[in-house]
Amino acid sequence: MRRRSPGFLLAAPAWAWLLIFFIAPVAMVVWFSFGYKPSIFATQATDKLSFDRYAEVLDPTFFATFQNTLWVGIAGTALCFLIGLPVAYWMAVKAPPSKRGLLVALVMVPFWTNFLVRTIGWQVILSPDGWLSTALQAVGFEPLAILNTRGAVLLGVVYNYLPLMILPLFVAFDRVNGPLREASKDLGAGKWTTFFRVTLPLAQPGIIAGVLLVYIPLMGDYITATVLGGAKGNMVGQLVASQFQTAQNWALGSAMAVVLIFVILLSAGIGAGIVWLVTLPFRARNRLVIGPPAPVPSAPSPGSGPAAASASIREEVGA
């Protein structure tokens, strides 16, 4: 009586749409990456398959760009975390509850402003003929020379991805805020002890989500480096784009895209492993103190409503 209609068929259009316009194109790129560029007029051919394009990707000049991207990715994610963590904590815990909505809105506005426009804003600020440079020169400094360097790219990515770090951390701290922290303080723990042994472990899913939400798109970034990096601040995203748009070598571009995905997955996996090892002693200590009857600290409780969906997704990301 209840389950009369095969309701899961409602998802069929979305399945089909994503299979045709996401899975199939990506699969085609993987296939192209084993092909080659037959002549200057053709973009790719796949009648002979080989790993030659991958050998080409690992050539020293390309390798240097990969290294550069990895450096920007890791440094950018770390800076986002260090800058964003206190802000998220401030928004969720320190700021008066009545102001919280406003603060969230304030972080949301840059997040939803066009990525390219925000980055151009930095280009204007950092320009050697811009007002900041002029003002600095008036006080006796050299003209700004940061534009078109790796430093400018780092600044740009930290700026562009910071809201993606702050928002999940805010949600995580907001969930922890309240009774548990009070209890910790009532039991005699100081500010720092409460933060490191109650708040931070409970905010773990948010931290994992934030780090991945910043790191993955940052590694594939194409706009920031194009606008701020010039010739010196190359990233892999630009290499891939140039193979498709200017060099018209789709085979090589595809191989680069595949390698990029592998580098992201591999480095995220290695990072997760390192974090797991480093925090092992702390987690062991925490478990001892709180004890098995209260399985709060390690697993994020599958909350109700919207929290459940995002928490389960984050767990998958973190796994």
Binding site: V29, D221, Y222, I264
Partner: peptide, 14 residues
Amino acid sequence: VTPEIVDAVALLPW
């Protein structure tokens, strides 16, 4: 989670 650039370069040939 797929970087946008991957979607983009995949959709063009598709």
